[in-house]
Protein backbone atom coordinates (compact mmCIF):
# COMPACT_ATOMS: atom_id res chain seq x y z
CA UNK A 1 0.00 0.00 0.00
CA UNK A 2 2.81 2.32 0.95
CA UNK A 3 4.76 1.41 -2.10
CA UNK A 4 1.72 2.10 -4.19
CA UNK A 5 1.34 5.57 -2.77
CA UNK A 6 4.99 6.25 -3.44
CA UNK A 7 4.34 5.20 -7.00
CA UNK A 8 1.52 7.72 -7.13
CA UNK A 9 3.80 10.41 -5.79
CA UNK A 10 6.51 9.52 -8.24
CA UNK A 11 3.96 9.50 -11.05
CA UNK A 12 2.72 12.90 -9.95
CA UNK A 13 6.18 14.36 -9.91
CA UNK A 14 7.12 12.74 -13.18
CA UNK A 15 3.98 14.21 -14.63
CA UNK A 16 5.11 17.61 -13.46
CA UNK A 17 8.11 17.43 -15.71
CA UNK A 18 7.10 19.11 -18.96
CA UNK A 19 7.01 16.73 -21.87
CA UNK A 20 6.63 13.59 -19.80
CA UNK A 21 2.88 13.08 -19.77
CA UNK A 22 2.00 9.51 -18.81
CA UNK A 23 -1.65 8.69 -19.30
CA UNK A 24 -3.59 6.59 -16.84
CA UNK A 25 -2.42 3.02 -17.05
CA UNK A 26 -4.83 0.48 -18.46
CA UNK A 27 -7.74 -0.03 -16.06
CA UNK A 28 -6.60 2.74 -13.75
CA UNK A 29 -9.17 5.20 -12.54
CA UNK A 30 -9.13 8.40 -10.56
CA UNK A 31 -11.18 8.55 -7.37
CA UNK A 32 -11.91 11.75 -5.51
CA UNK A 33 -11.73 11.21 -1.76
CA UNK A 34 -13.48 13.86 0.33
CA UNK A 35 -13.08 13.76 4.10
CA UNK A 36 -14.90 16.36 6.16
CA UNK A 37 -14.11 16.53 9.88
CA UNK A 38 -16.51 19.40 10.47
CA UNK A 39 -15.67 22.63 12.22
CA UNK A 40 -14.21 22.81 15.69
CA UNK A 41 -11.15 23.46 17.81
CA UNK A 42 -8.22 21.09 17.39
CA UNK A 43 -9.83 19.07 14.64
CA UNK A 44 -7.83 17.81 11.70
CA UNK A 45 -8.46 19.87 8.58
CA UNK A 46 -10.90 18.53 6.05
CA UNK A 47 -9.36 17.56 2.75
CA UNK A 48 -10.05 16.42 -0.78
CA UNK A 49 -7.59 14.23 -2.60
CA UNK A 50 -7.61 12.54 -5.96
CA UNK A 51 -6.01 9.12 -6.02
CA UNK A 52 -5.36 6.71 -8.84
CA UNK A 53 -6.53 3.18 -8.26
CA UNK A 54 -6.09 0.02 -10.32
CA UNK A 55 -9.24 -1.71 -11.49
CA UNK A 56 -10.70 -3.96 -8.80
CA UNK A 57 -9.53 -1.78 -5.93
CA UNK A 58 -12.20 -0.99 -3.35
CA UNK A 59 -13.25 2.42 -2.09
CA UNK A 60 -11.65 1.53 1.25
CA UNK A 61 -8.38 1.17 -0.65
CA UNK A 62 -8.86 4.61 -2.16
CA UNK A 63 -9.40 6.11 1.31
CA UNK A 64 -6.32 4.29 2.64
CA UNK A 65 -4.20 5.57 -0.23
CA UNK A 66 -5.48 9.10 0.23
CA UNK A 67 -4.58 8.98 3.94
CA UNK A 68 -1.14 7.60 3.13
CA UNK A 69 -0.60 10.37 0.60
CA UNK A 70 -1.71 12.98 3.14
CA UNK A 71 0.61 11.43 5.76
CA UNK A 72 -2.36 10.95 8.10
CA UNK A 73 -3.16 7.99 10.31
CA UNK A 74 -5.00 5.15 8.64
CA UNK A 75 -8.70 4.70 9.33
CA UNK A 76 -9.78 2.10 11.89
CA UNK A 77 -12.76 -0.22 11.69
CA UNK A 78 -14.78 -2.09 14.27
CA UNK A 79 -15.10 -5.86 14.13
CA UNK A 80 -18.35 -5.49 12.20
CA UNK A 81 -16.58 -3.50 9.52
CA UNK A 82 -18.00 -0.14 10.62
CA UNK A 83 -15.58 2.71 10.02
CA UNK A 84 -14.61 4.07 13.46
CA UNK A 85 -12.03 6.77 12.83
CA UNK A 86 -10.25 8.56 10.03
CA UNK A 87 -6.81 10.03 10.67
CA UNK A 88 -7.18 9.10 14.34
CA UNK A 89 -10.41 11.08 14.75
CA UNK A 90 -12.41 10.43 16.86
CA UNK A 91 -9.84 8.88 19.18
CA UNK A 92 -12.41 6.77 21.06
CA UNK A 93 -15.75 5.21 20.36
CA UNK A 94 -17.30 3.86 17.21
CA UNK A 95 -20.76 4.99 16.23
CA UNK A 96 -21.48 6.35 19.71
CA UNK A 97 -25.16 6.95 20.49
CA UNK A 98 -25.90 10.56 21.41
CA UNK A 99 -29.00 12.03 22.99
CA UNK A 100 -30.88 12.00 19.70
CA UNK A 101 -28.83 9.95 17.27
CA UNK A 102 -25.29 8.84 16.61
CA UNK A 103 -21.92 10.47 16.19
CA UNK A 104 -20.28 8.57 13.38
CA UNK A 105 -18.58 8.77 10.02
CA UNK A 106 -21.30 8.97 7.38
CA UNK A 107 -20.32 7.64 3.98
CA UNK A 108 -21.54 9.10 0.68
CA UNK A 109 -21.14 8.38 -2.99
CA UNK A 110 -20.72 11.50 -5.08
CA UNK A 111 -21.92 11.99 -8.62
CA UNK A 112 -22.74 14.84 -10.94
CA UNK A 113 -26.23 15.08 -9.42
CA UNK A 114 -25.01 15.32 -5.83
CA UNK A 115 -24.09 13.23 -2.82
CA UNK A 116 -26.06 10.10 -2.02
CA UNK A 117 -25.98 8.31 1.33
CA UNK A 118 -24.22 4.99 0.85
CA UNK A 119 -26.10 1.82 1.69
CA UNK A 120 -22.95 -0.28 1.54
CA UNK A 121 -19.50 -0.21 3.12
CA UNK A 122 -16.38 1.17 1.43
CA UNK A 123 -14.85 -2.31 1.37
CA UNK A 124 -17.85 -3.73 -0.46
CA UNK A 125 -17.68 -1.47 -3.48
CA UNK A 126 -15.22 -1.66 -6.26
CA UNK A 127 -14.10 1.82 -7.21
CA UNK A 128 -15.62 2.75 -10.52
CA UNK A 129 -14.02 5.34 -12.80
CA UNK A 130 -14.70 8.98 -12.07
CA UNK A 131 -16.53 8.70 -8.79
CA UNK A 132 -16.22 10.68 -5.62
CA UNK A 133 -16.29 9.09 -2.19
CA UNK A 134 -17.22 11.34 0.71
CA UNK A 135 -16.93 10.86 4.44
CA UNK A 136 -18.47 13.38 6.78
CA UNK A 137 -18.25 13.17 10.56
CA UNK A 138 -21.78 13.55 11.95
CA UNK A 139 -21.67 14.83 15.53
CA UNK A 140 -25.38 14.21 16.09
CA UNK A 141 -26.55 12.35 13.02
CA UNK A 142 -29.60 10.18 12.49
CA UNK A 143 -27.78 7.29 10.88
CA UNK A 144 -29.96 7.46 7.77
CA UNK A 145 -29.99 9.30 4.43
CA UNK A 146 -31.32 12.46 6.11
CA UNK A 147 -27.84 13.13 7.50
CA UNK A 148 -25.94 16.13 6.22
CA UNK A 149 -23.82 15.62 3.14
CA UNK A 150 -20.24 16.84 2.78
CA UNK A 151 -20.04 20.51 1.76
CA UNK A 152 -18.72 21.51 -1.62
CA UNK A 153 -19.02 19.93 -5.03
CA UNK A 154 -19.83 16.26 -5.38
CA UNK A 155 -19.08 15.77 -9.01
CA UNK A 156 -15.77 14.06 -9.75
CA UNK A 157 -15.32 16.45 -12.65
CA UNK A 158 -15.36 19.42 -10.28
CA UNK A 159 -13.20 17.69 -7.66
CA UNK A 160 -10.56 16.29 -9.97
CA UNK A 161 -10.80 18.40 -13.13
CA UNK A 162 -7.76 16.86 -14.73
CA UNK A 163 -9.08 13.34 -14.40
CA UNK A 164 -11.81 13.93 -16.93
CA UNK A 165 -9.23 14.04 -19.68
CA UNK A 166 -7.69 10.74 -20.50
CA UNK A 167 -4.22 12.27 -20.54
CA UNK A 168 -4.28 13.20 -16.91
CA UNK A 169 -0.85 14.39 -16.01
CA UNK A 170 -1.14 15.74 -12.53
CA UNK A 171 -2.18 14.32 -9.28
CA UNK A 172 -3.04 16.95 -6.74
CA UNK A 173 -1.67 15.60 -3.52
CA UNK A 174 0.10 16.88 -0.45
CA UNK A 175 2.10 18.98 -2.80
CA UNK A 176 -0.37 21.81 -2.24
CA UNK A 177 0.45 21.78 1.47
CA UNK A 178 1.55 25.04 2.93
CA UNK A 179 5.24 25.51 2.51
CA UNK A 180 6.01 24.89 6.22
CA UNK A 181 5.68 21.12 5.78
CA UNK A 182 7.97 19.75 3.13
CA UNK A 183 6.63 17.24 0.67
CA UNK A 184 7.72 13.78 1.69
CA UNK A 185 9.45 12.16 -1.21
CA UNK A 186 11.20 8.84 -1.11
CA UNK A 187 14.85 8.63 -2.02
CA UNK A 188 14.10 7.13 -5.38
CA UNK A 189 11.50 9.70 -6.23
CA UNK A 190 13.67 12.63 -5.27
CA UNK A 191 16.58 11.32 -7.24
CA UNK A 192 14.60 11.26 -10.43
CA UNK A 193 12.90 14.59 -10.02
CA UNK A 194 13.99 17.56 -8.02
CA UNK A 195 11.43 19.70 -6.27
CA UNK A 196 9.78 20.94 -9.38
CA UNK A 197 7.13 23.58 -9.12
CA UNK A 198 3.75 22.10 -9.90
CA UNK A 199 1.84 23.11 -12.99
CA UNK A 200 -0.90 25.60 -12.36
CA UNK A 201 -3.63 22.98 -12.73
CA UNK A 202 -2.97 21.70 -9.25
CA UNK A 203 -3.61 25.06 -7.65
CA UNK A 204 -7.09 25.17 -9.08
CA UNK A 205 -8.01 21.81 -7.60
CA UNK A 206 -9.70 21.99 -4.24
CA UNK A 207 -7.27 19.57 -2.67
CA UNK A 208 -6.13 21.20 0.52
CA UNK A 209 -4.17 19.54 3.23
CA UNK A 210 -3.49 22.04 5.91
CA UNK A 211 -0.55 22.23 8.16
CA UNK A 212 -2.88 21.39 11.04
CA UNK A 213 -3.55 17.94 9.66
CA UNK A 214 0.11 17.18 9.47
CA UNK A 215 0.59 18.55 12.97
CA UNK A 216 -2.15 16.33 14.41
CA UNK A 217 -0.59 13.38 12.69
CA UNK A 218 2.74 14.22 14.28
CA UNK A 219 1.14 14.67 17.71
CA UNK A 220 -0.26 11.14 17.50
CA UNK A 221 3.20 9.68 17.12
CA UNK A 222 4.13 8.06 20.41
CA UNK A 223 7.48 8.49 22.00
CA UNK A 224 9.51 5.32 22.22
CA UNK A 225 10.24 5.04 25.98
CA UNK A 226 6.75 4.03 27.21
CA UNK A 227 6.50 1.67 24.26
CA UNK A 228 9.30 -0.56 25.55
CA UNK A 229 7.72 -0.68 29.04
CA UNK A 230 4.37 -1.72 27.61
CA UNK A 231 6.13 -4.32 25.48
CA UNK A 232 7.59 -5.77 28.70
CA UNK A 233 4.11 -6.05 30.22
CA UNK A 234 2.83 -7.73 27.07
CA UNK A 235 5.71 -10.21 27.17
CA UNK A 236 4.88 -10.88 30.84
CA UNK A 237 1.26 -11.48 29.84
CA UNK A 238 2.30 -13.97 27.16
CA UNK A 239 4.53 -15.70 29.75
CA UNK A 240 1.62 -15.91 32.18
CA UNK A 241 -0.54 -17.37 29.43
CA UNK A 242 2.08 -20.05 28.75
CA UNK A 243 2.33 -20.90 32.48
CA UNK A 244 -1.47 -21.12 32.77
CA UNK A 245 -1.62 -23.40 29.75
CA UNK A 246 1.04 -25.76 31.12
CA UNK A 247 -0.60 -25.85 34.58
CA UNK A 248 -4.00 -26.57 33.01
CA UNK A 249 -2.53 -29.45 30.97
CA UNK A 250 -0.79 -30.92 34.06
CA UNK A 251 -3.99 -30.66 36.14
CA UNK A 252 -6.02 -32.27 33.36
CA UNK A 253 -3.63 -35.18 33.09
CA UNK A 254 -3.62 -35.63 36.86
CA UNK A 255 -7.42 -35.57 37.02
CA UNK A 256 -7.62 -38.24 34.31
CA UNK A 257 -5.10 -40.53 36.00
Amino acid sequence: MRRFSLLILAAALLGAVPGAAPALAAGERTIAVVVDFGAGEGLPASFTLCVKEPSGATDAQALADALTTAKLRQSTYSSSGLLCSIAGYPSTGCGVPTSSGYSYWAYFHGGAEGWSYASDGPAERTASPGTAEGWRFERDGRGNPSDQVPPGPSGPAALCPSSTETTSTTLPAVTTTTEATPVPISATASSTTTSQPLPPTSTTTPSVVHEAAARTAAAHEHSSSPASASAMVTVAAVGLLAVLGVVALVLRRRSRA
Binding site: S79, C84, T92, V233, A236, A237, L240
Partner: peptide, 26 residues
Protein backbone atom coordinates in the same frame (compact mmCIF):
# COMPACT_ATOMS: atom_id res chain seq x y z
CA UNK B 1 -7.41 4.02 28.80
CA UNK B 2 -9.96 2.48 26.43
CA UNK B 3 -7.18 1.42 24.08
CA UNK B 4 -5.70 -0.88 26.75
CA UNK B 5 -8.62 -3.33 26.81
CA UNK B 6 -9.97 -2.94 23.32
CA UNK B 7 -8.27 -4.30 20.25
CA UNK B 8 -9.06 -3.97 16.62
CA UNK B 9 -7.16 -5.56 13.76
CA UNK B 10 -7.02 -2.18 11.97
CA UNK B 11 -4.13 -1.56 11.73
CA UNK B 12 -2.74 -5.09 12.21
CA UNK B 13 -0.81 -5.06 15.46
CA UNK B 14 0.10 -7.28 18.38
CA UNK B 15 -2.44 -6.81 21.21
CA UNK B 16 -0.80 -4.79 23.96
CA UNK B 17 -1.46 -5.36 27.66
CA UNK B 18 -1.24 -2.72 30.38
CA UNK B 19 -0.14 -3.46 33.97
CA UNK B 20 -3.64 -2.74 35.34
CA UNK B 21 -5.28 -5.24 32.98
CA UNK B 22 -2.63 -7.84 33.85
CA UNK B 23 -3.30 -7.22 37.55
CA UNK B 24 -7.00 -7.83 36.90
CA UNK B 25 -6.15 -11.25 35.43
CA UNK B 26 -3.83 -12.22 38.30
Amino acid sequence: DPASVTWSPWPLSWPAVTPLALLAIV
